[in-house]
Design a protein around this nucleic acid. Sequence first.
DNA 1: CCGCTACAATTTGGCCCCGAACGATCAATT
DNA 2: AATTGATCGTTCGGGGCCAAATTGTAGCGG
Lengths: 190, 190
Amino acid sequence: MPGQRSITEAEKLVQARLGGVPVQHDQMAMVANIYRAASAVRQHFENSVLRGSDLTWTAFVVLWVIWIWGESETRHVAEEAGISKGTLTGVSRTLQSRGLISRAGHPSDGRLVLLSLTEEGEALMRRLFPEFNAEEAFVAAPLSAEECRSTADALRRVVVQVETHGEERRRSLLAGAEPAPRRSGRRPKA
Amino acid sequence: MPGQRSITEAEKLVQARLGGVPVQHDQMAMVANIYRAASAVRQHFENSVLRGSDLTWTAFVVLWVIWIWGESETRHVAEEAGISKGTLTGVSRTLQSRGLISRAGHPSDGRLVLLSLTEEGEALMRRLFPEFNAEEAFVAAPLSAEECRSTADALRRVVVQVETHGEERRRSLLAGAEPAPRRSGRRPKA
DNA sequence: CCGCTACAATTTGGCCCCGAACGATCAATT
DNA sequence: AATTGATCGTTCGGGGCCAAATTGTAGCGG
């Protein structure tokens, strides 16, 4: 677990590299740990409960969303699952090919596509979710229920911060300059 | 921000789908929020500070590790950065092609490869890190310094839990059964 | 010196991931 | 009926990501 041990130690090294420029330690440590925890948890889930059904974390989340909310339009599923529409297209194709979900056109709006679980997908979720939840309890075992709640609450506030003020923040950082293209991704036609 | 609003609401729906099987609410909410916060934060960083230098989160973390620890063996960089060795090979190739890092063979052990920042990479990190840290402060703005510390500490304990007991847990879940292959990835030769 | 085992980084295969471009559809005009 | 503008899901390009297979070096015992 060298990554963890080094976090606090790293801060001294950062100071050395920056030569006196002040660093926001606590915020830096929290962000680093958010990402590290997310990776560790995802990895554990994929290699324990999900491996047996050969699902990725993302595929499971998509199934979960449809399971909870019932037949849904793809854009809503993508937003709930926290992935882009383009990604969902690929994931749902995979899940459909395995017979876990089905797609149907919207009766009155030809642009929409509705996703729903097949009987097989439904049965899988009924079987899988309790195992998944048991693993959630496992990774959270060192924390009391109260600590889980306050941690969840703190993280929720971070998400709210980014989702409500993030775009405005990004605009003000650019300060009028054009948004700078990505190197990856489809090229503009011009 | 429908995703957040729905978390607590979703728990009632889960109960309905499971018909009385008990659910660990607090642990479930925490895990969901860890992942959601990590995605939101990563996305915000890539679209703000990192976009201008066309770096992904992962590429930045790799640069950061080398910056802090100095010239390092690839396996150590991969572990610190929280990615697999195979992923690092690709990322470091990209960074090298952009002139930000350089690679050198180990003087006495021909198997090892050492990564270090070029002068250009060094300059980039000196310029970029303060911007990065300012964004860490931005996303953490709704939380007090004390809340950042306790949240970071809780997440650290989750990581420790997974890293110390995860493998044992996965083994006991399988209970002797063979580990079940992945659908994706290279096929066993047999 | 010759296997042999251990361990390093790389390659490979299949998926995930984003966001720009695209084609189809809809709704509101005219 | 034709035009226009918004919005849907899909396609596409360039990466990221893991773990098994592969390739190559190290260092041992014989």
